[in-house]
C-alpha cells in the first residue's frame, strides 16, 4: 500500500490530539490525587524529527494523550494514530505494542529507511511510560 495513502495523509494534515500544551498544562494543578502526568521528548538527529508526548494516566488507565512535534509525514501521522489508539486504553496496551502492530496500524510496509520515522512516536510513548508508577513529585 502507498505510504502516502489517504489515511496517512489525513492524519498528517489533520493531526489528532496535537497540542503545544501537555495534559498537565491543560488540566493545571487541580488534578485528582490518583492522576499521574508523564512527558517525554524523542528525536531522530538523522532527520531532525522530534516528538514530545504527554500522558495523563489514572491508575493504569490512559485518560489523555497530547503531543507536539515536527517531522516527515510518516512520523507525524504515526503519532497522531497512536494518540487515538491509546486514549482510553491501559498502560499495558502501550507497553505491549510492537513494531508489527505499528505497521499494521499505519497499514503499510516500510523499508528500513522509513521504519525509524514510523517508530519515533511509539518510542516517545514507551519512554514516557517508563516513569509510570514512580513517585509523582509535585
Amino acid at each position: 500500500m502507498d505510504i502516502y495513502a489517504e489515511n496517512i495523509l489525513d492524519h498528517y494534515r489533520n493531526p489528532r490530539n496535537r497540542s503545544p500544551l501537555s495534559p498537565q498544562e491543560r488540566i493545571g494543578k487541580d488534578r485528582p490525587e490518583d492522576h499521574q502526568f508523564m512527558q517525554y521528548t524523542e528525536n531522530n538527529p538523522a532527520c531532525g524529527d522530534e516528538i514530545t508526548v504527554g500522558l495523563d494516566i489514572q491508575n493504569t488507565h490512559v485518560c489523555t494523550i497530547s503531543w507536539d512535534g515536527t517531522g516527515c509525514a510518516i512520523s507525524q501521522a504515526a503519532m497522531s494514530m497512536l494518540s487515538e489508539q491509546f486514549t482510553g486504553k491501559s498502560v499495558e496496551d502501550i507497553e505491549n505494542f510492537s513494531t508489527e502492530d505499528m505497521l499494521a496500524l499505519l497499514g503499510v510496509n516500510l523499508g528500513p529507511r522509513r521504519l525509524k520515522c514510523a517508530l519515533l512516536g511509539l518510542d516517545a510513548l514507551k519512554k514516557a511510560m517508563k516513569s509510570h508508577g514512580a513517585a509523582d513529585e509535585d
Partner: peptide, 19 residues
Amino acid sequence: HPHDLTEILGRQGICLRAG
C-alpha cells in the same frame, strides 16, 4: 520534509538525496 519530498520524487524515478 526532505524525506517526504525525495520519497515522492523517487517514485517518478527522480533520485535526490535527503537528510
